[in-house]
Design a binder for these strands. Structure first.
Lengths: 219, 219
DNA sequence: TAGATTGTTAATCGATTAACAATC
DNA sequence: TAGATTGTTAATCGATTAACAATC
């Protein structure tokens, strides 16, 4: 196959493949079939083959995919074969959690600066990074070649922060605030709104059959 | 329209509608049209009307939707018109961030218990809650009528925790570990894997034109 | 009334899955 | 060779969007 336009659904599955392939690699598994992948990742094998075939002929008929080779290829496709520098804005609990979470360093995503707009936070340390005032965003983005911004501020500040990021030349934003932020079309925005995930989960609960809340006593 | 089977895509948009409607309510806006909603939420107005029409005739032709009424209805549909008790397993940074994040209390989702399997964590306080050992999960779930579980443990523990949750009678799981966890089909699982969001973001970056990494000096 | 906006059908668009020839 | 598995086409399935009669 090789190119067409790649749909977002496909792109979002690539990191999922990558993650599991890396686990296989660690376990010294050298080859994997679309069927095995599908089983493990709850995906249709045909879909996996099709996804990968958009980008090239990575497999071998009768054999499957070479794990190490496919890891390399997916990393290239995702453009994480080089280190990508990331700025985090919002040094609250979630921001701290994210910057402590160093798993993505391995994936060549590196948080290299943390910002906040509250005086109290500025100057404090998060891991090895000093929290900087928002005024320094623009310069730091340029100096440190920061390309992605993560927003972990309260929702009422999220749009303002996004605007600053865009102005500073950031190319893509991961937004944790439960709000739809607006940006020019060349800026890619992903929303990581777990409150949506949580609330929609409730829909799938079995209807109560005479259950009541724990706390307030209706009797 | 009224019922058929409701697709997951529809259900996932309901919390998004709800959130913005609640904001409108706070601002004392009483009525809103699908067009206004669409503009604000980056969605097609026809899609919004269709989504809502699955559940009933909530709007008025020529007028739009009554904000307060629609909030009520969506809360009913999502089954968050009653308090839903939630257990959090994993008292690390992310777990702390989530339990501090009290926004969903307003949405009738309430974290009523926190668990961890590390001795060091057990007995410490997270907000008003004492971290309990995993052994108490089963009993606490029953006693406190906990229906949803949130997993914020490292990936290698996630499946084990999920198994415990299922055994304890939890009905739905929000999983933050970057791994596909398996459970019986009647258990609903949502994955809130922000590393996927972050990595897939890189795909959309403009290709480098002679840029290099910040840190290591190639010259 | 005239203008606005819903609910719903039909048309379009896109994504997933099945099937199979090619080939290791 | 026989068995396995890819890459890809065709078929299916599902979701989004346009259009418009109904009606406030």
């Amino acid at each position: 196959m090789k190119s067409d336009k790649i749909s977002e659904a496909v792109v979002r599955r690539l990191p999922v493949y990558l993650r599991y392939l890396q686990e296989l690699y660690k376990r010294e598994v050298t080859t994997v079939s679309s069927q095995e992948l599908g089983l493990k990742l709850d995906l249709n094998p045909a879909q996996i083959r099709k996804d990968l075939a958009y980008f090239g002929d990575f497999g071998r008929k009768g054999i499957g995919y070479d794990v190490a080779y496919l890891i390399d290829k997916i990393r290239q496709i995702l453009k994480i074969d080089q280190v990508i520098n990331v700025a985090l804005v919002g040094a609250g609990n979630l921001g701290q959690a994210l910057s402590n979470y160093n798993r993505y360093v391995k994936d060549n995503m590196k948080i290299v600066a943390v910002f906040d707009s509250y005086d109290k936070k500025i100057g404090t340390m998060i891991n090895t990074l000093t929290v900087q005032p928002m005024e320094e965003l623009q310069n730091t983005v340029k100096e440190r070649n920061i390309r992605i911004g993560i927003i972990t501020v309260p929702d009422f500040e999220a749009q303002r922060v996004a605007d600053c990021m865009v102005e500073a030349g950031i190319e893509a934003i991961l937004n944790f605030a439960p709000i739809i932020i607006k940006a020019p079309p060349h800026i890619r925005i992903h929303t990581a709104d777990f409150t949506t995930d949580l609330l929609s989960l409730a829909y799938y609960l079995e209807s109560e059959e005479g259950k009541e809340e724990t706390e307030d006593d209706k009797s």
